[in-house]
Design a protein around this nucleic acid. Structure first.
Lengths: 72, 72
DNA sequence: CTTTATTTGTCCGTATGTATG
DNA sequence: ACATACATACGGACAAATAAA
């Protein structure tokens, strides 16, 4: 991923995840873990968390402590 | 149970159990098992164990391996 | 004595929540 | 944005202790 320096990384990651959810790549109940994000994009966990938090705020995923975040 | 996200679940469970002990709902010798807690609150066993451990630390219950935890 | 059932003790792996630097 | 650490939480598995059939 070549980052756009003009926008936060977590936002760019959230954009990709949002696309995958809306286009069916990530069907309901698909788990989106923070570690998976850190591995795919090579970012820190805190950055991955911000991306997931954005999707959660949009009502696209739900987060269960100790379990993970899942597509709604 | 609608959890208060600001406080640990095991603490909130311990609060309820403590109340039941002090108000006589759970008289002495009443057994408080971990499985009973997991079933009533829908939490993992480790969470139930932490709640019981808190009560034990407060001297409200005693735990006997292989038997259970009992109100003092 | 053996078996069965129940409960606590412990450990592993994984994941999120929070805090500090 | 990153690195690290610790707490909290879920799931599963196996051992040890206790009691009862």
């Amino acid at each position: 991923m070549d980052w756009d320096p003009k926008r936060p990384r977590w936002q760019q990651i959230a954009d990709v995840l949002r696309q995958r959810i809306t286009d069916g790549t990530y069907p309901p109940d698909t788990m989106i873990s923070e570690s998976a994000i850190t591995q795919e994009w090579g970012v820190a966990r805190i950055t991955a968390r911000k991306a997931v938090a954005a999707l959660r705020a949009e009502g696209l995923v739900t987060t269960v402590p100790g379990m993970g975040s899942f597509v709604l």
